[in-house]
C-alpha cells in the first residue's frame, strides 16, 4: 500500500533548508499530519542537512541530496540520500544535557534533537551514499 509522496532534490547550500520548510509544511497539512509532526520533521531535517552540508563534503563542489517523504498509516517516513562522507547519526555520542553554561557543548545537540523528535532512525552506507530513514508515527 502506497500513500502520498513528496520527492525533493536539494543541493549543498544551507539556504535550501528554509526553502523546503514551507513545502514540507504544506505537504504535512495536505495529508492531515498536523503542525507538531510537521515541526518535528522540519527540525530533524534541518539538523541533519546542516551537518551534511556544513561538514560532509571534502570538496567545494555542488552535490545533490535527495529528500523523500511518504505518508503511511497516518505517520511519515523520510528518506535522505547523499554522497557526503560516511556518517552514522545513530552511532553519535549523546551530549551531556546536565552540564552548566560553561561546560555545555553544542556539538551533538542537533543529533540529540533528531533522536528525541523521531520514533525510529535507520542508517546504511551503500555504494558511497549515506541512506537515512526517519520514521515519525502519527500522534507519537
Amino acid at each position: 500500500m502506497s500513500g502520498p509522496v513528496l520527492n525533493l532534490t536539494i543541493h549543498n547550500d544551507l539556504a535550501e533548508i528554509s526553502r523546503i520548510a514551507p513545502i514540507i509544511d504544506a505537504f504535512c497539512a495536505d495529508n492531515g499530519l498536523g503542525d507538531e509532526l510537521a515541526h518535528a520533521v522540519n527540525l530533524s531535517l534541518d539538523e541533519l542537512l546542516t551537518n551534511t552540508i556544513s561538514y560532509g563534503y571534502e570538496d567545494a563542489g555542488r552535490h545533490e541530496i535527495q529528500v523523500d517523504l511518504s505518508v503511511a498509516s497516518g505517520g511519515l517516513t523520510v528518506r535522505l540520500r547523499d554522497d557526503a562522507r560516511a556518517f552514522d547519526p545513530t552511532a553519535a555520542a549523546e551530549p551531556d544535557l546536565d552540564a552548566d553554561i560553561d561546560e555545555r557543548a553544542v556539538g551533538g545537540l542537533g543529533i540529540h534533537i533528531v533522536r528525541a523528535m523521531m520514533d525510529d532512525i535507520r542508517y546504511s552506507r551503500i555504494d558511497g551514499h549515506n541512506l537515512l530513514t526517519l520514521i515519525k508515527r502519527a500522534g507519537a
Binding site: 539538523e47 553554561i101 553544542v106 542537533g110
Partner: peptide
C-alpha cells in the same frame, strides 16, 4: 516561529557573555 540547534548555540554564547 522556529529555532534549531544553531540558534541554541547563539543563546549559549549569550549566556556565557552574560555570566
Amino acid at each position: 516561529t522556529y529555532i534549531s540547534s544553531a540558534g541554541l548555540r547563539v543563546l549559549l554564547l549569550a549566556a556565557r557573555r552574560s555570566k
